[in-house]
């Protein structure tokens, strides 16, 4: 049974590239374009890992992360924050809110895949 990944970003081209990448690596993939949609997809799709953009309309990645982490039933779910703002404070904030990893845009596809795999293996 393939592991499930939810991709959340408001840039359609980035979603497209990530979707293609993750499917190629053999994951089952779902997408969401904003924070609210992301929360709905988590309910419906029950992913093992979420790739979460920070700057999004309606709810920021931070808020989504906080809500997800408040639910103990999903404590096993991994969260990887993606952001174009690479400042240390933002990295720290994401990790403090319970993200498992923090990836800065633009990223290397190889590294991202490796990061995702290691997180899912550890879980």
């Amino acid at each position: 049974m393939p592991q499930k990944i939810l991709i959340v970003d408001d840039e359609p081209n980035i979603v497209l590239s990530l979707e293609f990448l993750m499917k190629r690596e053999g994951f089952q993939v779902a997408v969401a374009a904003d924070g609210d949609a992301a929360l709905e997809q988590v309910q419906a799709f029950a992913p093992d890992l979420v790739l979460l953009d920070v700057m999004m309309p309606k709810k920021s990645g931070y808020e989504v992360c906080e809500i997800l982490r408040a639910d103990p039933a999903r404590s096993a779910m991994k969260i990887v924050m993606l952001t174009a703002k690479g400042r240390d404070t933002e990295v720290a904030k994401g990790l403090a809110l319970g993200a498992d990893a923090y990836v800065t845009k633009p990223f290397s596809t190889k590294d991202l895949v490796a990061q995702v795999r290691s997180l899912l293996a550890a879980g």
Binding site: I14, L16, S17, L21, K105, P106, S108
Partner: peptide, 11 residues
């Protein structure tokens, strides 16, 4: 700047 760069690099 990074947002378009991200797509460009990924693709």
């Amino acid at each position: 700047l990074r947002t378009p760069l991200t797509s460009i690099r990924a693709f």
